[in-house]
């Protein structure tokens, strides 16, 4: 084990952290602004991945597949918000948990119905299939760097939207005081719909872009959901900055956990969360 091995692990960890950040930032926005627990968030990651797989299969090009899959995923998200989740905004967390739990059952079963129980994969597009040599024997795939770069661009874009635009101002206001925002005459239902769709788009996009490096399998949404929840809790609910820091901590520590302590890799993530929460019960950062 030499330095370059650790460098590769670190890069993998950061890349996984970026993906987690995309999923978790949507989740934290929905929690923080709408005060809604959305367990089906992981399902949107899965939906994104399967849509990209399906459309890439049809058109033979991953980028075209992703481009077409994004509006489809957003449409599914908006439909779910309008038809189901909008009814439980005021009903409390318990009913939200149950409703979204039921949605997971439905989405998972639909996935099995449409694509079966086998796991699938998509090839890395030719343009990005190369790799960068680090030492004589070790290389680093370009596609993973590409994922990180795209995530950075999206992250900066999100930062700009939330900090500098009018929509962002409303989102921030919604996170700190919902009733006040309504009193100022802002259509909160529309804001909720936008925020929810934004969250869905981010999660689905993370699923799409990760398709060439991860395989697609039934229940893939559950794994990413639980780990994103951990990220959100560590970072502080409603905080994008927290989601970023939490995603990096969890991404890097879970990748290193897998290589250094393979027997207890998954436990490490949760133990880390427990440690952070003993220190700071409300997470690392305040809302937005």
């Amino acid at each position: 084990m030499e330095l370059s091995f650790y460098l590769i692990q670190l890069l993998n960890g950061i890349q996984f952290g970026f993906l987690l950040f995309l999923v978790a930032s949507g989740l934290t926005l929905v929690f923080g602004i709408m005060d809604v627990i959305n367990l089906a968030h992981g399902s949107f990651y899965m939906i994104g991945a399967y849509l990209a797989y399906w459309l890439t299969g049809i058109f033979g090009n991953l980028f075209l597949g992703i481009l077409l899959a994004i509006p489809l995923a957003i449409a599914i998200g908006m439909a779910v918000e309008k038809l189901a989740i909008a009814y439980v905004y005021k009903k409390g967390h318990l009913h939200q948990v149950l409703l979204t739990y039921a949605l997971i059952l439905i989405f998972d079963e639909m996935q099995r119905f449409l694509w079966g129980n086998d796991s699938h994969s998509v090839d890395v597009p030719n343009l990005l299939s190369g790799s960068i040599p680090l030492t004589d024997i070790q290389v680093y795939p370009v596609y993973r760097l590409f994922i990180s770069a795209v995530c950075i661009i999206i992250g900066i874009g999100m930062f700009y939207v939330i900090q500098k635009t009018k929509l962002g101002m409303r989102i921030r206001a919604g996170a700190s005081n919902n009733e006040m925002v309504q009193a100022l005459g802002i259509n909160i239902e529309r804001l909720f719909s936008i925020v929810f769709s934004l969250g869905v788009a981010l999660a689905a996009f993370a699923g799409m872009i990760a398709v060439p490096v991860d395989s697609l399998y039934p229940g893939m949404g559950d794994n990413i959901l639980i780990i994103s929840l951990v990220v959100v809790v560590i970072g502080g609910i409603g905080s994008i900055k927290g989601a970023f820091v939490g995603a990096m901590i969890i991404g890097v520590s879970s990748i290193f956990g897998k290589t250094l302590l393979p027997d207890m890799a998954s436990v490490i993530v949760y133990a880390m969360m427990a440690a952070i929460l003993i220190w700071r019960p409300k997470g690392l950062f305040q809302a937005i």
Binding site: F31, I226, S266, V267, A271, A274
Partner: peptide
């Protein structure tokens, strides 16, 4: 609230993975 729900979930997952692995 939300924190409690997610904490209980996360701890249960910790025990789950402990026995799983």
């Amino acid at each position: 609230g939300v924190y409690f729900i997610m904490l209980t979930l996360a701890f249960a997952q910790m025990f789950y993975y402990f026995f799983f692995e």
